[in-house]
Write a protein that binds this DNA or RNA. Sequence first.
RNA 1: CGGGGUGUGGCGCAGUCCGGUUAGCGCACCUGCUUUGGGAGCAGGGGGUCGGAGGUUCAAAUCCUCUCACCCCGACCA
Length: 490
Amino acid sequence: MSKGVTPQSKDYAAWYTDVIIKAGLADYGPVKGTMVIKPYGYALWENIKGALDAMLKATGHVNAYFPLFIPKSFFASEAEHVKGFAKECAVVTHHRLRATADGKDLEVDPDSKLEEEVIVRPTSETVIWSMYKKWIQSYRDLPLLINQWANVVRWEMRTRLFLRTTEFLWQEGHTAHETADEAEQETLKILEIYRQLAEDYLAMPVLTGLKTESEKFAGADKTYSIEAMMGDKRALQAGTSHNLGQNFAKAFDVTFQDRNNQKKYVYATSWGVSTRLVGAVVMAHGDDKGLRIPPKIAPVQIVVIPIVRSEEDQVKIKEYVDIFLGDLIDQGVRIEVDWSNNSPGFKFNEWEMKGVPIRLEVGMRDMSDEEVILVRRDNGEKQAVQVKELRNIIPKMLAEIQSSLLQQAKDFQHANTNSVDNYGDFKKIISNNGGYIRCGWDGTPETEDAIKNETKATIRCIPFDSDPSGLTCIYSGKEAQHEVVFSKAY
RNA sequence: CGGGGUGUGGCGCAGUCCGGUUAGCGCACCUGCUUUGGGAGCAGGGGGUCGGAGGUUCAAAUCCUCUCACCCCGACCA
């Protein structure tokens, strides 16, 4: 394995893959488009998951688990939302293998053909709403606020680690409500939770807003999203929250008796974030040395590198390290000591690749001064610190790194967001610099489509803080219906 | 699905045009000693049916036929 990674400036896509492999986040699986999430990557996902799960529970949501397999008939019956997924569904047609004639291999047993084929879920609306029909009778059963953590399968043609794989992990929330207003409130509440997760934990500023008709989820009335800017200035949709209106209630005939004893269709929402967030963290913060993981979600917050010259040194340093280590662990700091036989330089590079926020070096020199050396991954700053100060300094430093990463990402986003009022500048910025462009849009899919074809940029969202007054459409020159954000996207 | 490419120890490759020693190199791995404040050194060692099948030949990683797999680029998506 060669040292280092492809520089971002040379080939951003290669950099991304290199970092993920070399930092030990993931590896390729044996089936095309699949990936193995390795322990370090899974620990990162677990930290993200833990933070979000707590927020969802704090807002009254409960977890449940629905089956992986969906009867094909569920898909036939209900057309609109399936359109988006039909082309990428894995289908189970048989349930048994048998030995081949020569006994050397296995083949599908034709006698095990299923009466009704089974779909591997690409998303769970259909199974869940088939159950909701049984569970919901009265307004007293509402709201129903269920979330599930699960894997889903979408047979994608072109895949990339974490960003788009055949199978991925996510959470999908599915709620049912009495009124349209309640459903809208829920949709927005979840979007706000996603925004907080992104900014407070992933240190990743996001754009929040409404998706256009052409970009929204097929089964939804409205789709909101959080959009994050990656290191190559392209946008990544990092989470979506859908107001499904009564679409699914009607498709699955889910009704309830309301407070006036009237039979009504329920209102629904669904929302999700996936392991794609891991890819987002990689691209939002990573540099040419590797990952930079925000402390709050870092599997390892501090790595201790002992500088050892002899076996006697090792014993002494181990004693020395144990003194302050226990103290920090008691404070909940996640620490790992690298006692491996690799050289210090090797360890420095390796743990920088893994994005650990703080490196703590201890050698005999430091020991005699009752110090250790701290090095921050976010900015490379190095300082000697008295051991007795560690318990105070470490939490502070972790918090500083967390906010410094957020600030760097914010500055980057601001520096690469432009407001533009003519199409010439628009095209120039998209092709030369990239990033976000705020401008007027006449609200027609034709304009959206034309711009996409000419520049590859798409409308990421209609931001909540947008204001079309006085603006004209960047493309048609007509009066703007919305101020929108365009960008090239993943 | 259209175009381009690659299959040789775990990874990255050379060798293929022009068939001919025992299939080689770097990294990784194992053992030992010396090392350790920015990717350590030396010595020794293990690991390959050259993607698969068939053919030509005294002889095939190398030539021919078929086949499989994967990667990259163009129309979709969290």
